[in-house]
Computed example of a mutant assay.
Amino acid sequence: MPDTPVSEMSFEQAMKELEQVVGRLERGDVALDESITLYERGAELKKRCEAKLKEAEEKVAAITLDSEGQPTGTRPVSDD
């Protein structure tokens, strides 16, 4: 597994590695200690993917459209 810090990964990188982690865990051909390490890495990757998806959703939600449906810019996203 790559040693790239999860906090520096793009969504695509994190998702690809998460798929690899899940595949290895599903095969069950790793020792218990390695399984635990893989599970912990997978949990971090999942959290990173969720955070990146939320960022993207907020950016999309912030796009405003004019009366003809054309993007006119962005508006601040409120917390409510």
Rank of each mutant, 00 (worst) to 15 (best):
K52R: 15
Q20C: 10
S78A: 07
R41M: 04
Q70V: 09
V60K: 11
D29I: 11
V21N: 01
E55V: 10
I63F: 05
P2L: 09
K16I: 03
E17Q: 13
V6W: 02
E57D: 14
L32D: 11
E8F: 00
R27T: 14
C49T: 15
L18F: 13
M15V: 01
R24W: 09
R75F: 04
A43V: 10
L32M: 08
M15H: 09
R27P: 09
V6C: 04
P76E: 12
E34L: 11
V30I: 14
Q13G: 03
K59M: 14
E34T: 10
V21E: 01
G28L: 15
K59P: 02
G73F: 08
D33Y: 06
G69I: 02
V60C: 05
D66E: 06
L65T: 01
I36T: 09
T64G: 03
Q13C: 03
E44K: 01
D3R: 10
S7Q: 05
I63Q: 02
K46C: 04
E26R: 14
I36H: 05
T37C: 01
L25S: 07
V6N: 00
V30Q: 13
A14S: 11
E55W: 12
R27K: 15
M15T: 02
V21P: 00
R48K: 15
S78Q: 05
Q13E: 13
I36N: 03
V6H: 04
E34G: 01
I36L: 09
I63W: 02
K59L: 13
Q20V: 14
S78N: 07
P71M: 02
M9Q: 07
K16A: 13
A56M: 14
G23W: 06
P5T: 00
L32F: 12
M15E: 12
